[in-house]
């Protein structure tokens, strides 16, 4: 399985191939671990600030999907954010969050059409996908054991889907 290291730019999105997701939730674990201090599974779960995952594996009629922030072009969360914590990165198209500015008003939770932003009750701030700033790739994509998660352009993803069919 080739894991191409691609980071967010305007055309690159993280896709989930629902025909290959087996709901093992490895992406959930990897995401939480990536956002821990230790970046190590066993140690991350005993950290004082329990690391939070930023995506959720969910069921759709017998299939499953990893639901994560889509970094929307016109991001409703950015519009709704009244503390200025959420903003769009004009270069990469990423929807970024400034933890320092977040006050935990949950306006972003209220408007995210994917339910991809959740409230961390302990820290009282919203938590969302930050595209793994500490690594060259994405933790969820890199650890997906079936290759269901994929980072690339839509064309590349569609190519991958048709290739599989053959």
């Amino acid at each position: 399985m080739s894991k191409v290291k691609v980071k967010k730019d305007k055309d690159i999105t993280i896709y989930c191939d629902v025909t290959k997701c087996v709901a093992c939730r490895t992406c959930e674990l990897a995401c939480a671990v990536e956002h821990s201090k230790s970046k190590d599974l066993a140690n991350s779960i005993i950290e004082k600030d329990t690391p939070r995952k930023r995506l959720t594996v969910s069921a759709i009629n017998g299939k499953s999907i990893s639901v994560h922030c889509q970094h929307c072009k016109e991001a409703p969360c950015v519009t709704a954010c009244m503390s200025g914590a959420l903003s769009k990165d004009e270069k990469t198209g990423a929807t970024l969050q400034d933890n320092e500015k977040c006050v935990g008003c949950w306006m972003c939770v209220m408007t995210c059409p994917f339910g991809a932003i959740v409230g961390d009750s302990a820290k009282h701030i919203a938590v969302k996908c930050d595209l793994c700033p500490d690594r060259d790739d994405y933790a969820c994509v890199a650890t997906c054991p079936t290759g269901a998660l994929f980072a690339g352009t839509k064309k590349e993803f569609e190519k991958k889907l048709t290739k599989k069919k053959k």
Partner: peptide, 10 residues
């Protein structure tokens, strides 16, 4: 618990 881990299921 839903969805359940596919590796376990299989």
């Amino acid at each position: 618990q839903d969805p359940h881990c596919g590796f376990g299921t299989l």
